[in-house]
C-alpha cells in the first residue's frame, strides 16, 4: 500500500496512456471494420478473404508484430504508434467478422421494404442497415475492447509506457504490490470500458433491449 501511495503519479501516468492506447485502436478498428464488413456481406468472395486474412493475422504473436513494425513502416523502435497500429490491425481482424455477421443479420424483408419506401443506397446503409446491425456490432466491440486492453500490456515489453510496465518492473524488482496494482487496474479498466459500451448500447439501441425483454418474457 505504501508503494502505491509513493508512486501515484507514475501509476496514473501509466493508466492514462493505457486508456489511450486501448481506446484509439478499438475506435479505429471499429470504424475501419464497418465498410469492410458491409462489403464482405455483399460479396461472398470478399467475405471469404476477410475471414481468412483475419484468421491469419490473429495467429501472428502480438509481441513479434509490435517488434517487426518499425522495420516495416519506419517508425522509431519505442514509438507508441507501433502499438496503436498493431492493435488496430487486430481490432479490424476481429471486428470485420462481427460487422459482416451484423449486416447479414438484417432481415432481407425489412431492407426490401425500406428500398420500396424510397430509401436511396446511402440512406439504406446508414439509416437502416447500420442501426439494425447494431446489436451484433456492439457484441463485437465489447470483445475487441476487452482484448485490446489486455494486449496493450504486451507493449510494455516493447518499451512503451502503460500499466503493463507495472508487471515487467514488478517482476524485475520482486515488488508484489506493483504487480498486483498492475493486474487490478488492467482488469478494472477492461470492466469499466465494457460497462460504458453496455450503457451506450442501451441508449443507442433501445429497440433491441425491448426486443430482448419481450422474447425473454415469452420464453
Amino acid at each position: 500500500m505504501r508503494w502505491i501511495g509513493n508512486n501515484t503519479d507514475l501509476i496514473l501516468g501509466y493508466l492514462a496512456s493505457h486508456v489511450w492506447l486501448s481506446i484509439v485502436p478499438t475506435v479505429l478498428g471499429f470504424l475501419l471494420a464497418l465498410p469492410i464488413g458491409w462489403w464482405a456481406n455483399r460479396v461472398p468472395a470478399v467475405r471469404g478473404v476477410v475471414l481468412s486474412v483475419g484468421n491469419v493475422l490473429y495467429t501472428i504473436p502480438s509481441l513479434a508484430f509490435i517488434l517487426i513494425l518499425p522495420g516495416v513502416i519506419g517508425t522509431g523502435f519505442l514509438d507508441p504508434l507501433n502499438i496503436v497500429i498493431a492493435l488496430t490491425v487486430y481490432a479490424v481482424a476481429v471486428m470485420a467478422r462481427f460487422a459482416s455477421d451484423g449486416f447479414a443479420s438484417v432481415s432481407p424483408a425489412v431492407l426490401d421494404s425500406a428500398r420500396a419506401s424510397g430509401f436511396g443506397a446511402a440512406g439504406l446503409a446508414l439509416r437502416v442497415e447500420l442501426p439494425l446491425a447494431g446489436p451484433v456490432l456492439l457484441a463485437g466491440l465489447r470483445v475487441v475492447s476487452v482484448s485490446t486492453v489486455s494486449l496493450v500490456s504486451v507493449g510494455a515489453l516493447a518499451g512503451v509506457d502503460n500499466l503493463g510496465r507495472l508487471f515487467t518492473e514488478g517482476v524485475f524488482t520482486g515488488n508484489t504490490a506493483e504487480i498486483l496494482t498492475g493486474i487490478v487496474l488492467v482488469v478494472a479498466l477492461a470492466l469499466v470500458l465494457d460497462l460504458l459500451l453496455v450503457i451506450a448500447g442501451r441508449a443507442l439501441l433501445p429497440w433491441s433491449a425491448g426486443a430482448r425483454r419481450v422474447r425473454g418474457g415469452v420464453a
Binding site: D112, S113, A114, S208, A211
Partner: peptide, 9 residues
C-alpha cells in the same frame, strides 16, 4: 407488403 416490412428500430 405481407410482412408489414416495418423498420424494427
Amino acid at each position: 407488403m405481407q410482412a408489414s416490412g416495418l423498420l424494427p428500430h
